[in-house]
């Protein structure tokens, strides 16, 4: 088990290097560091000295991937790519192109992101499982048919609609909760109700359908017949046998996104003005701040890989058949 985890972590290194290569290639294929500097300094009155100055300050005064001026290993290490990547691997995000401390920003903005993403995740998971169980329990009745149709309808509605309708109905018409203006502490709780509700509702359609398929598939298996032949009631078969087996794919599917909760929900945060990492990313996109975007890409990849690892570990916890080697 330990050897497996260590191996997976080692395997993550080439993946993260690959991720960095891709982001660097993407961002610098057309935008040279000069372009970046010019943009950050403002288009007007930029002297070449000012550009050089800015580049040196932000560590862009080297070649991208290959430094022909140096010799030996330094040809590869004394480059923007190497310098910036090595720092990222140490989780030192450095300064953003506009001069902010990215690491501090992330630490600060992580909490609002979690405050919304975690409740959405947990409440959503519980809601979807409950709905799916209900639908499966009422198999082959009109209740099932209408519930299935309802889920299709719900998943056909744009998530933007849920947000806009929620803000409009609950916030504006009924004045029940504030629409924007996140602040820490207790008042955040009242404010978070709406975004969380919107987040959960917009996920019900696809989530419930997916879990229903899983449960239905379990119902077709032989051990269910054995359970019935024992004289178990349908409810017991559902909860003791089907639910327990169905939880294997459900839990492991959910675990993979667990670490990604840190990076927040772009749309929800942006719409509701929550100062989390999601809106941080969007702001960076709109401000064309590559340093932040790159950091978020790296962070996202790390979290994804951690998620994969957690998935494997959670398999061993919920499924006795699986052992990691």
């Amino acid at each position: 088990m330990l050897a497996y985890i260590v191996r997976r972590i080692l395997y993550a290194i080439p993946i993260l290097i690959g991720v960095n290569v891709i982001t660097f290639a993407l961002f610098f294929a057309v935008n040279t560091p000069n372009d970046v500097a010019r943009m950050q300094l403002g288009v007007k009155r930029v002297t070449p000295q000012a550009i050089e100055e800015w580049k040196r300050e932000h560590g862009y005064d080297k070649p991208l991937f290959y430094n022909a001026a140096r010799s030996g290993l330094a040809r590869l290490t004394d480059t923007i790519f190497f310098q910036k990547s090595v720092r990222l691997f140490a989780f030192d995000f450095g300064r953003s192109d506009s001069g902010r401390d990215i690491g501090a920003d992330i630490r600060q903005r992580m909490w609002p992101s979690l405050a919304i993403a975690v409740p959405v995740f947990i409440v959503g998971l519980l809601t979807n499982i409950t709905m799916a169980l209900l639908i499966v329990f009422f198999r082959a009745t009109y209740l099932e048919v209408s519930a299935v149709v309802l889920t299709v309808v719900m998943m056909s509605i744009s998530s933007l609609f849920y947000i806009i309708a929620g803000q409009f109905l609950i916030g504006k018409l009924m004045h029940l909760v504030p629409i924007s203006g996140y602040s820490g502490g207790l008042s955040a709780f009242k404010f978070l109700v709406l975004p969380v509700a919107v987040g959960v509702i917009s996920g019900i359609g696809s989530g419930t359908r997916w879990y229903r398929t899983i449960f239905l598939e379990e119902f077709g298996k032989d051990y269910v017949r054995t359970a019935r032949a024992k004289g178990l009631s349908e409810l017991r078969v559902l909860f003791r046998h089907v639910l327990k087996n169905g939880m294997v794919p459900i839990l492991t599917g959910a675990v993979v996104i667990l670490p990604l909760l840190f990076t927040g929900n772009l749309i929800l945060e942006s719409f509701f003005g929550i100062p989390g990492l999601g809106s941080y990313t969007i702001d960076a996109i709109q401000g064309q701040d590559f340093a932040i975007v790159r950091s978020m890409v790296f962070l996202g990849s790390v979290f994804y890989i951690v998620g994969l690892l957690l998935t494997d570990i959670s398999y061993t916890l919920v499924d006795p058949r699986i052992r990691l080697r």
């Binding site: 298996k221 051990y223 054995t226 359970a227 032949a229 024992k230 004289g231 046998h241 087996n245």
Partner: peptide
């Protein structure tokens, strides 16, 4: 079922619940 009449099946591999 399971009380007065018991039943066993052809595929013992799949007829038992794998997680219990």
């Amino acid at each position: 079922r399971g009380g007065r009449i018991g039943m066993i099946f052809q595929e013992p591999m799949t007829s038992l619940n794998p997680v219990l």
